[in-house]
Simulated scan of single mutants.
Amino acid sequence: MTMSALSRPGERDRPLIKFLEIDWVFCLLLCLIAGAGALIMYYVAGSSWTPWAAAHLVRYGIFFVAMIILAMFPLRVWFEVAYPVYVAGLLLLVGVELVGDVAKGAQRWLEIGPVRFQPSEIMKVGIVLALARFYHGVSAESARFSWWLLIPLAMIAAPTLLVAHQPDLGTAILIGATGVAIMVLAGLDWKLIAGGVVATLAALPPFIFFVLQEYQRKRILTFLSPEKDPSGDGYHILQSKIALGSGGFLGKGLGLGSQSQLDYLPEKHTDFIFAALSEQLGFLGGATVLLIYVGVIFMALRIASASHSHFGRLGSAGVTATFALYVLINGAMVMGMAPVVGVPMPLLSYGGTVMMTVMIGFGLVLSTRVHRYSEVTSGRGSLL
């Protein structure tokens, strides 16, 4: 470090200075998304704060405070907990396989006393932290192409396969894609990237027809032609398209969307809340929300690029990749451009576990901003 961190305005130990170093414009954008979600939940519930809108705002308030507290933690703390969080998440996923609760044909939950949670949510953060720590100690040449790459591949494959077996294809895709994104950002050779893309495309047909379960295969085939089963597997996509299209440019008005108000639109407060928003606020409202998402992603990437720590850069970029994948997959899903895989729109959709994961991740992003002049020192990027 060429200059003492304490001489930098963003690295003084005084809590007030750290508090002021938080990017409050970034926080405002997050609040706008959560607020828009609460607004739509209020109207799709028949102009009622219950059962969704009030709970959504309370959860967001709690996690927002938690995010600010996490932003104060030095990057060294995040670095030290990276592998323990990953290992704990992996062990909990194994626990799901052994003693997890089964609901709606899927085994995704664990109960520890009064607490019921999805360990896959922990792994969304764990994979980012663990890979960021691993690559922090690996040379640029080794990150580009070496036998060292087998370690991050195994780190990605283990949780991805465990989550896919639950089965939770949407979350498995998120974990796997986030891990690959971090490998690419760490400097993976473009020839390996191209080869991986070709291999993935070649493996898709046999994967769909011989690996996926019957209902998952039907979802993909229905996505290609939802009109063939309009009252069955194609119902979600068709109703979502109707809601999006009927909103027009300015929308039908808050509380006036027929698809969401008359309960034609399924999961209108969770997976398909963006369709409900677009029906009521139109193309203009939907585009505005998407632009806010773009602003969040752009600002998070800018924070990542300004960090002096390789761990901070990769960790923040990995969190941003997860967030962007949420938006991309859900947006494509509600527009009929991707199969329905149960991925919510982050912060906009109702649900505590996904919101918790996103806000913890953004705690790391803001910590990278506050401690952007810190340099985390370490040895080799092994699992030791």
Rank of each mutant, 00 (worst) to 15 (best):
F249C: 01
Y215N: 12
K228V: 05
E267S: 12
L238E: 08
F283R: 03
G232R: 05
E214N: 09
S240F: 04
A287E: 02
G248M: 08
G286K: 10
D271W: 01
L290F: 14
L244M: 11
K252F: 00
Q216W: 04
E267K: 09
L204M: 14
A243W: 00
G257V: 03
P266C: 10
Q261T: 10
L277K: 03
Y215T: 10
F210I: 02
G232I: 09
D233E: 07
F223M: 00
D229H: 01
L224E: 03
F223N: 02
L277T: 11
T222F: 00
G255W: 10
F207E: 04
G257K: 01
S225L: 05
Q216V: 05
S225H: 11
F210M: 13
E279I: 08
L291N: 00
F209T: 14
L254I: 08
L204W: 14
S278A: 15
V289Q: 00
A287M: 14
E279G: 09
R219M: 04
F207I: 13
P205Q: 07
S278C: 14
L221I: 08
P226T: 08
T288F: 14
G232F: 03
F209R: 12
F249Y: 13
L224S: 07
F283T: 03
L212A: 07
Q239P: 04
G247A: 12
L238G: 05
I208F: 13
L265E: 07
Q239M: 07
Y215L: 02
G248D: 05
G257S: 10
L244A: 06
P206R: 04
F223W: 15
L250R: 13
D263M: 08
L262K: 12
L221E: 13
H269Y: 14
L277A: 11
Y215E: 10
S260E: 07
F209M: 06
Q239D: 00
F209G: 01
E227N: 06
G285F: 11
G257R: 02
P206L: 09
V211Q: 13
S231H: 12
K218L: 11
Q259H: 05
Q239K: 14
F207Q: 00
E214D: 14
L291I: 15
G245D: 01
G286H: 12
A275P: 06
P226K: 05
Y215F: 14
L254D: 07
H236R: 11
V289M: 12
F283H: 02
L224C: 05
I292G: 01
P230H: 09
A276E: 09
L281A: 15
P230R: 04
G257M: 03
L281F: 15
E227L: 06
G285V: 06
G247K: 10
